[in-house]
Amino acid sequence: MSTLPWRRIVLIAVAVVCLAGAVFAVRGPLLMAAPACLAGRWHGCLSTENGVVLMTLVGVPVAVLVAWPLALRRRAAGVRSAWRMSLAEVGMAYGTVPWVWLTLMPGSGAGVVPGRLSLVPLVDLVSMGPIGIGGNLLVFAALGFFAPIRFTALASTPRILALGAACSTLVETAQYVFQLDRVSSVDDVLLNATGAALAALASRRWWRTDPAR
């Protein structure tokens, strides 16, 4: 009997435990945002970081249900790896949009404070702290993880690194152009791209490398 299913079960169990532990660690801030979100006060919910994180967690089952009909449709059409492709598409979108929303969330001086640039590499890393660095690594991690699974043309770490850098540059440019009271930093681009590349390496065994599929 193959040990592969048991390995998958163990990996899934570890992932669930890690996710549950993360949710438990931030349960206080999330519960603070819960009244506004549950009451449908979307401005008070989705305009806060806690509210966005809470709604993202709550919407995970919905994202899985969205992948279900996509996979069934592909299976009916005779597409191989229908579930993997469908989950990759949903994972790319659902795992990236909330992070981009957070990075484009305006500050208190939005529209008043001029855009600020920080173009010297590694200068801002000191002031970010572990949470800031970790958050930047996760912004395009879902994109880096799922994109090479879905698209053969992106099944390459350098390409995912370039994709993460390009997407991050667009976000930082938007922060500056729309005067969102945020610092557009080259260190953010470096961390975002690095996070995408590391996530791509984590999913390498599932990359879609056969163009004929």
Rank of each mutant, 00 (worst) to 15 (best):
M1T: 02
M1P: 00
P5E: 01
W6S: 03
W6D: 01
R8C: 01
I12Q: 04
I12M: 06
A13I: 06
A13L: 14
V16I: 13
C18Y: 05
G21E: 06
G21Q: 07
F24P: 00
R27M: 08
R27D: 08
R27N: 06
P29I: 12
L31S: 13
P35F: 11
P35E: 09
A36H: 13
C37P: 08
C37L: 11
G40D: 10
G44Y: 04
G44H: 05
S47Y: 10
N50W: 09
N50Q: 12
V53P: 01
M55T: 10
T56K: 03
V60I: 15
P61S: 10
A63P: 07
A63M: 14
A63R: 03
V66A: 08
A67M: 07
A67P: 09
A71Q: 10
R73V: 09
R74D: 14
A76T: 05
G78I: 04
V79A: 14
R80V: 09
R80H: 11
R80G: 14
S81I: 00
W83S: 05
W83H: 07
W83F: 07
L87F: 15
A88Y: 01
V90F: 07
V90C: 05
V90D: 02
M92Y: 04
A93N: 02
Y94G: 14
G95R: 04
T96E: 03
V97T: 06
P98L: 06
W99H: 11
V100R: 01
T103A: 09
M105E: 05
G107R: 02
G107A: 05
A110I: 07
A110V: 07
A110L: 08
G111T: 07
G111W: 03
V112H: 09
V113T: 12
V113Y: 04
P114L: 13
G115H: 09
S118N: 06
P121N: 11
L122T: 13
D124A: 13
D124P: 00
S127V: 09
P130H: 06
P130G: 05
I133R: 02
G134T: 04
G135I: 02
V139Y: 05
A141F: 00
A142Y: 00
A142D: 01
G144L: 02
F146M: 03
I149V: 15
R150I: 01
F151D: 00
T152P: 00
A153Y: 08
T157C: 05
L161V: 07
L161R: 07
A162K: 05
L163Q: 08
L163F: 09
A165E: 13
C167L: 14
C167V: 14
S168L: 04
T169H: 06
A174N: 00
F178K: 00
D181V: 06
R182S: 08
V183W: 03
S184G: 11
S184M: 03
L191A: 12
G195S: 11
A197H: 10
A197T: 10
A197F: 11
A199P: 01
L201W: 14
L201Y: 12
A202P: 08
S203M: 09
R205A: 15
R205Q: 15
R208A: 14
R208N: 15
R213C: 14
